[in-house]
Design a protein around this nucleic acid. Structure first.
Length: 199
DNA sequence: GTTCTAGAAC
DNA sequence: GTTCTAGAAC
């Protein structure tokens, strides 16, 4: 019984590994080829729905160019990043997003390979948003604003990255509602509270 | 990135 | 006893 269960699990793992090119951190590379996730695509980039959305609307804008992360971005990518920003802006203005507010930004330290721009509605209402890390990664300065990233690249020829210490500090920020001064005791408490801000 | 779960917190 | 967080995953 338990032996059979183990076999089943390892077969599942093998399937997952094939899809993720050997490691979970490559998951975006297969996600950007998944027709069920693709929202739009062209020769420069692919827009997908985040597989585990942290809000009611959560998209990823992923360049086709193999840029590993923000650390690999230099001035030669300025036009591409501006273009990604513009595509994001256009996306937020589509009819189904009417009366929604969005944030657009890059995680200072991303887990998944291939540069990706988060476009996320500010409701933060999603069953996939479960942990303090999830919360703080979108509600603190851990999320580097797309417009600011573009401006820094344009003005200084490089992006202001955050030290790993500062990233850790952002992740350890005590929970706080992003729309008012409410201080929740726990994540379930916070998730209940944010319902009050839904329209 | 997620899942799972031990043990901390309540 | 139950809820919740946080660290391992070979």
């Amino acid at each position: 019984m338990s032996g059979k269960r183990k076999n089943f699990d390892s077969e599942n793992d093998d399937l997952k590994k094939m899809k993720t090119n050997g490691h979970w951190s490559n998951g975006l590379l297969s996600a950007m080829e998944d027709p069920e996730l693709i929202v739009q695509s062209n020769s420069k980039l692919v827009v997908i729905q985040d597989k585990f959305p942290k809000a009611e609307f959560h998209y990823l804008i992923i360049p086709r160019e193999d840029i590993h992360s923000l650390k690999a971005v230099d001035k030669s990518h300025l036009e591409l990043l501006k273009y990604m920003h513009n595509i994001g802006e256009r996306l937020t203005q589509e009819p189904r997003h009417q009366s929604r507010t969005f944030k657009m930004g890059y995680h200072a330290e991303a887990s998944m390979t291939r540069l990706h721009l988060h476009v996320i509605s500010d409701d933060m209402n999603s069953p996939c948003l479960k942990t303090k890390k999830h919360w703080n990664s979108f509600t603190t300065h851990f999320l580097l604003d797309s417009k600011e990233v573009c401006e820094n690249l344009e003005k200084y020829g490089k992006i202001k990255l955050l030290s790993s210490e500062y990233c850790k500090k952002m992740m350890d920020t005590p929970l706080k509602c992003h729309k008012c001064d409410y201080i929740p005791k726990t994540m379930p408490d916070l998730k209940k509270h944010i319902m009050k801000h839904l329209k």
